Simulated scan of single mutants.
Amino acid sequence: MITRISITYGTKQVLSKLQTRYPDRKLLLLDSSTSGEQLALLDVSGQESVFSSPIHYDIKGHRGTTDWQGFINFIYIDNLSPDDQKVFNSKANHFLTTDPMPEGMRSIYFMKDEKNRSNNILLTTWEKSDDFTYWKKNDSFTPFNYFLSSQNNYHEASYHFFKPEDK
């Protein structure tokens, strides 16, 4: 299992060149589902980064497939009190070990930002975006609702795989 994921952002031209330059790496070109033309390159190889300005996430736990397909969502939660951090860690770890996974969820990664250890990230992969939307309204997401506030710097980023014919 990989222990780190890296991401960088840029133009299609720059990110595509990196994919071409490192064909042996698992570099996934992603397009923002909501903003369009906001591209990211996700390195899921677990190797030392080839990006000039990467953001590294240390994987604390994983569940599900390692086959990257479909819809991808990042949930960022930061600025937790020490007590809230313990509660969040417990809820995330419990979710990673509880059956069954929500309908359409392919995988979940519980991660920490390498430079900002208080930044918690839930990276989830889905068959389709509707499955993610349903999960957020489902009972299995309820343990995380407490943390979804602006005081915790909560925000999300959703992506799909870049398809040249889309642009």
Rank of each mutant, 00 (worst) to 15 (best):
I59N: 03
S35P: 00
F162Y: 15
K163W: 03
F132G: 00
Q85M: 11
M1R: 09
T20Q: 15
N138G: 03
A92L: 07
N119K: 15
V44L: 06
K12S: 08
K136F: 01
K128C: 09
Q19S: 11
K167M: 05
H160C: 09
D84V: 07
Y9N: 07
F95K: 08
S53C: 10
S140N: 08
H155F: 14
H155P: 01
Y57T: 04
P54Q: 04
N152P: 01
Q13T: 14
D113W: 04
Q19I: 14
S6F: 07
I5D: 00
D67K: 13
L28H: 08
K115G: 01
N152F: 09
P143D: 07
N89F: 09
S118E: 11
Y9F: 12
K86F: 06
Y159P: 00
N116L: 11
T11M: 04
E127Y: 05
N79G: 10
F144G: 01
T133E: 02
V44M: 04
L29T: 04
W126M: 01
S81I: 09
M101C: 09
G104S: 07
T142M: 06
D130Y: 08
S49K: 05
D78G: 04
S6M: 08
D166E: 10
N93L: 15
D130G: 14
E165F: 10
Y134A: 14
K115W: 06
S81M: 06
E37T: 15
L30I: 03
I108Y: 01
G70P: 04
S52M: 11
K12E: 09
F88L: 13
V14F: 11
P54G: 05
S35K: 15
Q151D: 12
Y22S: 05
F144P: 01
D166W: 06
K12I: 14
S149H: 10
S150N: 07
I77R: 04
K163Y: 09
N89Y: 10
T3Q: 14
G104Q: 03
D31G: 10
Q85G: 08
N79W: 05
Y159K: 03
R25I: 12
N119I: 12
A157M: 11
N120A: 11
D67A: 11
S90I: 05
I5V: 15
Q38K: 15
D78L: 06
Q47S: 09
F51E: 00
T3F: 12
Q151A: 11
I5Q: 07
G70H: 03
F110P: 01
D24G: 01
N152T: 09
S140E: 09
P143G: 07
I75T: 14
D113H: 13
R4Y: 00
I5N: 03
W126L: 02
L39N: 00
N89E: 15
L39E: 00
K17T: 15
V87G: 00
A40R: 04
E165Q: 13
Q151P: 00
D78E: 12
T66C: 05
T66I: 11
Q38H: 12
Q13K: 15
M105V: 06
Y109D: 06
M111A: 10
